[in-house]
Amino acid sequence: MARADNNLFMSNLSGTIGNQMTIRHRGGSTIVSKKQKKSKKRSTEAQLEVQEKFSGAILYANKVMLDPDLKALYKAVALPGQNAHNMAVRDARNPPEIKSVITDNYTGNAGDQIVVRAIDVFRVFQVVVAIYTAAGALLEQGNAVMGRNSIDWTYTATKKNTALKGGKIVAMAEDLPGNQTYSEISM
């Protein structure tokens, strides 16, 4: 693969030439490479699954390109050599990550707070916290509020939990493409 910057001959040229080489443009550079041939092997189940997920990511990125505001947001965080479409595909392919669920200030009383630290390639859309009793019954569930640092989400309990010991807290983080990640903490 060769790169050509500021080349008068190739500045407006792209595509495949003579069934031997391909010329394309990316990030202000012209890239010349050998034409790739299609494989004659059948895809494995794992490869088909990856292809399906990638197709979903492409569909999401295409929708983002139709929304000027969202497109501008993705473009603003794009790395050098990337564009808004690339960032949207990357976001769709990578689910959010829950770094921690902090329950130090939760003692089972209404008004106690649970903090969920969640990050994403682009942005976390929402964090939902569910509190379960020791018997496994759902006591309450609701949305956490994003903090000023954009990674800490605080959920304020609304009900008294008399069966705290043996219960659990489940946090779910979701990003804009709809990827969800769960974390469970036993009490």
Rank of each mutant, 00 (worst) to 15 (best):
S183R: 15
A57W: 01
T16C: 01
A144D: 02
G178W: 08
L176D: 08
V129S: 07
T156H: 09
K75D: 13
P96G: 03
V116P: 09
D175T: 10
L138C: 02
K71T: 10
N6I: 05
P80K: 10
N7Y: 06
A157P: 02
I31A: 01
T156D: 09
D112M: 03
K165F: 12
T156G: 10
D69V: 14
V115M: 06
G56S: 10
Y132W: 12
Q141D: 05
K159H: 12
T103W: 03
P95L: 02
F54K: 08
K35M: 05
M87S: 03
A72D: 04
N143R: 10
M146V: 14
P95A: 13
T44S: 15
E52Q: 14
K160T: 15
R3A: 03
A46T: 06
Q180N: 13
Q51W: 07
V77Y: 01
E97L: 10
L8Q: 10
A110V: 00
Y132S: 03
A118Y: 05
L48F: 05
M1T: 08
S29H: 13
A135D: 06
F125I: 01
P96A: 04
K35H: 00
A137R: 11
T103K: 05
M87L: 04
K41R: 12
K53Y: 11
T30R: 02
G18F: 01
Y106A: 10
S100Y: 06
G178C: 04
V50T: 09
Q51E: 13
A2D: 02
